[in-house]
Simulated scan of single mutants.
Amino acid sequence: MIVRIMGEGQVELADSHFAELNKLDDELLAEMQRGDGEGFRRTLHALLDTVRQLGEPLPDDSLEPSELILPSPDATLDEVRAMLSDDGLIPG
């Protein structure tokens, strides 16, 4: 799966990593619902760091269709809230 982190680029990520990412996504959603800004920031960074660590970066000149788009590390709680689906940032 191709994942885009806004403002950074794309990485290719194996589907086998989505259980781990969904756990972080669930935490992020819960923190947003509670209005926990500090927890939201910490979990957003953990989610993005995990994608970076587990994914294989695509070359900068490559532009593949992204199956998943994640917010930039400096995105606000309101910006991320606007990106959410019923499942959070990551479907499933």
Rank of each mutant, 00 (worst) to 15 (best):
M1K: 14
M1S: 12
M1R: 08
M1E: 09
I5D: 02
M6E: 14
G7C: 05
E8T: 05
G9I: 07
V11F: 04
E12Y: 10
E12M: 14
A14E: 14
D15Q: 14
H17A: 12
A19M: 09
L21F: 00
L21N: 00
N22M: 12
L24D: 03
D25Q: 02
D25C: 13
D25F: 00
A30W: 01
E31S: 09
R34N: 02
G35S: 08
G37Y: 05
E38F: 15
G39D: 02
F40W: 01
R41M: 11
R41E: 10
R42P: 02
T43H: 07
T43P: 11
D49G: 04
T50V: 03
V51W: 01
R52D: 11
Q53E: 09
G55L: 07
L58Y: 04
S62P: 01
E64Y: 07
S66W: 08
L68Q: 07
I69K: 15
P71R: 07
P71F: 09
S72K: 05
S72M: 07
P73C: 02
P73E: 10
D74P: 01
A75N: 06
T76L: 03
L77Y: 00
L77E: 07
L77C: 05
L77I: 10
D78S: 12
V80I: 13
R81F: 08
R81I: 05
M83H: 04
L84R: 08
S85K: 00
D86C: 05
L89S: 01
L89Q: 03
G92H: 04
G92Y: 01
G92Q: 02
